[in-house]
Structure formats: C-alpha cells, structure tokens
Design a protein around this nucleic acid. Structure first.
Lengths: 169, 169
DNA sequence: GCGAGATTGTCAGTATACTGTCAATCTAGA
DNA sequence: TCTAGATTGACAGTATACTGACAATCTCGC
C-alpha cells in the first residue's frame, strides 16, 4: 500500500511554489495596471524607463542586464517607449552597431508624475499581510531571487557590475 | 531641503515587490522548463492537464476558474494539449455551447511520468533557502495570494466552490 | 592588417496573459 | 411562450517572454 502513488489532486498545483509565483505575478501586474491606468505604462515599461533615466546613454544589451529582461523582448518595449515620445535613440559614434538610449523631457515628467501611483501599487500588493510579515516576505524573496539569479536566461547584472566594463564587455 | 524628492535610483525598481515577483516567476519558469525538457510541457499546460484529470468532463470556463488562468489564454493552451493528443474535447449533450474536456491515456501516462521532474523543479526553486525559510516563504506567499485573490482578473475558484454550481452558475 | 570569434540589434516562431468583442446558445421572468 | 440578459467559446489586438537565427560590426590574436 505504501508503494501506491497518492492520487493526483489540485494540491499538486496549488501548494507548489511555481504556481504561487505565477499567481502573485498576475496579481501584481493587475494591481500595477489599475493604479497606473491614467499613465498608460506597463510594469516592464516603467522599469525600463527608470533604468534609462538612471543610466543615460545606455544601450539595449546593457539595459537588458540592468533590469534582467530578455534582449529580444526589450526590442519591442524600447520601440513602444520611443513611439510614445518617452525616450530617444541615437547611433553611437564609437560603435556603429549600438544605439544609445536617453530619456526625453516628456519621459522624465511622466516618471516624476507616476511615482506616487507606483508606490500605491507596490503597497497594495503586500497590504493584506501584517507589517512584520511583509518585511519577512520581502527579505526572503530578495534572497531567493538573488541566490537563483543565474537560473534565469538573463541574470541581473546591476550597474556597478557594468561600470568597469569596456564597450565589449 | 526635506521637500526635494530623492533622486531616482534602480532601488526604485529592485526593492519593489512587483519586480521581485516578476523575476521569481521568470526564474521559476526557467527551472521548470529545464527539468521537464524531455516532456515538452509548459507549467501552464501541466496545471491544465492536472486539472482536467482531476475534473473529468470539465469545460473551459470552469477550468479557467480552477487554475485561475484567463479564459482567452486557455483557448490556445487547450488547443495545444489536444494537438499533442493529451486531452480530448467532446460536445456536451446538455448545452450545445459547451465542449467537455477529458484526459487521454497518453495524457495520463505523461502526467504520471512527469511528476518526478515537476517535484525536482519545485524543490530547486526554493533550494537556496534554509528549510525553515522555505516554509515561512511558502506560508506567507500562500496567504498573500489567497488574500489578494480578488485582485486578479480571474480569481481562483477552487473545485469545492464549483461542485454545487449548476451548469449556469 | 587580417581573419576567427564575439557582440549588437533585429527578426521569426512559439507560448503565455489581458481587454474587448461577437455569434450561438441558454436561462429566467413577464 | 417570447424575449432580455447571461454564458460559452472564439477571435482580434496588444504586451510580455524565450529560443534560435542572422547580418553588420567590432575585437583580438597572429
């Protein structure tokens, strides 16, 4: 009897970290979009815009490392930000393959205006938990993401890891 | 001076729950796909397959409630599972709008074979944390997903909430 | 200075996700 | 019974994501 595998129930899905991470991501995006509706900016576009403002003249490949988004995916994100007039692309003088990204005045203004809505969204995601539990969750999640960094296709390479890199890494 | 907003740094992204949930979801999918490579099944397809086996004759709308996936998205997922011969669709005798889903022998066999790989993947996601921290994280995440259930477009409606529903809810 | 190998941006293909819409169909109330 | 409203599956449109490929370009060893 002990060799008979347990019957498969939905708990084979519900209690698994993979399922919970997916659900939480869906919920987080929904809350973000709701709070930021008037700004017409997605979470990914927001992260890219912050990174471009923080690193003026960054190229797409480095941007992908700084926010840990796939380079392929980033192409269309950049295109949309440019179409909205929030960023500009200029050819690099040193490397003709590279296109440098900078934020426009409109982009900087949008970023300034959207921050309160983003803060509200982030707060709402954790709001159902007690303050102490929020802190615990964030600490553990930060650790886990950091320790699993290499498991994703595009590991995060924070800005300090890029600073001393030459144009060709 | 205290009214001057702090300069925007990447911490405006890195330390936010929304960003961490996205990264963790990316990492979780990457690990799942790696462990389950030989079975050619995505996390979403796995969840759908488990739900169809657990609820033989379920329709697409209820399936979407049981795994909390969007009904629109589920259409193509079902199509792919059917194309692989893992599930079957049959018209309902009672309601001509409805198509009932059942798992095939091939689907059940795949599910039986893939379980160890899924278990390995789920374990790997949390592996970098200490055992006690894993438990804490899962507990808090379960609570948070549950308490935020209504915030997503498709809230989870577990099977017991569906059992006593008539065909038209 | 030249060619092997790496890098950059781009693209095609596949797979989630969500919004909004639609025709076919069903249910329930007047 | 007849119809207003709800439901179902499907679809179009947009936006992430990842794989794998490619031409243009750059770097570095020789």
């Amino acid at each position: 009897m002990q060799n008979r595998p347990a019957a498969l129930t939905m708990d084979a899905v519900y209690t698994k970290p993979g399922y919970l991470f997916r659900r939480m991501q869906q919920i987080a995006v929904a809350i973000f979009m709701e709070e930021c509706r008037e700004f017409d900016l997605t979470p990914v576009q927001y992260a890219a815009l912050v990174a471009i403002q923080t690193h003026p003249g960054i190229d797409a490949t480095r941007l992908s490392a700084v926010i840990a988004f796939d380079r392929s995916t980033l192409g269309s994100v950049i295109e949309r930000l440019q179409a909205k007039g929030l960023i500009e692309r200029a050819a690099s003088a040193e490397d003709r393959r590279v296109k440098l990204l900078t934020i426009t005045k409109a982009g900087a203004a949008l970023l300034r205006d959207i921050v309160p809505a983003v803060e509200r969204a982030q707060a709402r995601m954790l709001q159902p938990l007690k303050a102490a539990d929020r802190k615990t969750l964030m600490t553990l999640l930060s650790q886990l993401v950091d320790l699993n960094n290499e498991a994703s296709r595009v590991p995060l390479r924070a800005e300090d890891a890029l600073e001393h890199l030459g144009r060709a890494g």
